[in-house]
């Protein structure tokens, strides 16, 4: 944890923005090609990352495809009664769906489809994801069984009878969330610094082959939502790539921001709201606003 006394002016400003939005925030924003130029707030603290785990899962998938150990075009059928619940995509459909593995990756990244992500993780295996995290020097990243472990731990920790009941329990402002719900152990978890390292590896071609790194960047540029990171950069000539993660009061996004002049920044912002509501537009928006302030600071330093 970084000491508050050592905060620079921009870090104090960003902490003030988090306070005003009613959240605690963790942040790591860095120049893509010069990562020592960074703005960071508690970047090595580990917390549950929700669907952000789909980024290392995608990277592990690409490595296996590069090695010929997985066929990206292999078609799999997702049966309704075997699918993991979720708010989007194949998770909300009624009938069997047959899709190629690489298209499942597209669905899990662009609309955060849980059913697709679970099918990809079953094909890739958690060991391959762990191996990728070790190789890319992400010691604090553990995805376990992804969304399945996130949900099963949540149900166990809340003592609820169903996932819906567990989710309702943690969305209630009138009850205290049971201990353990936001404990990173046994859930997909990481740090802002680890995610920044992974993004850099995807953008510099270290994570997989050039062709597959390009695929990953393309997919991350097609994410459907713009309410978090992208909301800080509402311009046609700024490209924002990202993956959101949401778990109870946690709202995150990990991505890359490319300005028109070619300068690029990894931007990872994790938040935890004081309120339990599932809809908190201020908490979503501060992710983009905080990243924006950090990018402006780094861009300003480049001009000196």
């Amino acid at each position: 944890m970084s000491g508050r006394r050592q905060d620079s002016g921009v870090e104090r400003e960003i902490r003030g923005m988090f306070d005003d939005a009613g959240v605690r925030g963790w942040l790591h924003v860095a120049e893509l090609h010069r990562p020592s130029a960074r703005v960071a707030i508690d970047p090595t603290e580990r917390l549950p990352i929700g669907s952000v785990y789909k980024v290392p899962l995608m990277a592990a998938f690409c490595r296996l495809a590069d090695a010929g150990l997985i066929d990206p075009c292999r078609r799999v059928t997702l049966e309704p009664d075997e699918r993991v619940p979720g708010p989007t995509g194949v998770s909300i459909l009624s009938d069997p769906v047959t899709v190629s593995l690489r298209d499942l990756v597209v669905l899990m990244m662009t609309i955060s489809d849980n059913a697709s992500a679970d099918a990809v993780l079953r094909a890739v295996g958690p060991d391959a994801v762990d191996a990728l995290c070790r190789d890319l020097d992400m010691p604090d990243t553990h995805i376990h069984a992804g969304v399945v472990s996130n949900f099963s731990r949540l149900v166990a920790e809340t003592g609820a009878r169903s996932l819906d009941a567990a989710l309702a329990r943690v969305a209630d402002n009138d009850t205290v969330v049971p201990p353990g719900v936001y404990d990173p152990a046994l859930k997909a978890s990481s740090t802002a610094a680890d995610m920044a390292r992974l993004l850099r590896a995807i953008w510099t071609g270290e994570a997989a082959s050039d062709e597959r790194c390009a695929f990953m960047r393309e997919v991350m540029g097609k994410q459907a939502w713009a309410h978090r990171l992208a909301s800080g950069f509402p311009y046609d000539d700024v490209a924002v790539y990202g993956k959101t993660g949401t778990f109870g009061s946690l709202r995150h996004e990990a991505g890359v921001v490319e300005l028109a002049d070619g300068s690029a920044y990894t931007a990872v912002v994790f938040t935890q709201a004081a309120r339990s509501d599932t809809k908190l537009p201020r908490a979503d928006a501060v992710i983009g606003a905080a990243a924006r302030v950090a990018v402006e600071e780094l861009r300003g330093r480049q001009d000196v």
């Binding site: 306070d19 005003d20 939005a21 009613g22 402002n173 709201a273 004081a274 309120r275 509501d277 201020r282």
Partner: peptide, 8 residues
Amino acid sequence: EAPAAHDL
């Protein structure tokens, strides 16, 4: 004084 409580 307490942004989250105020907003709620």
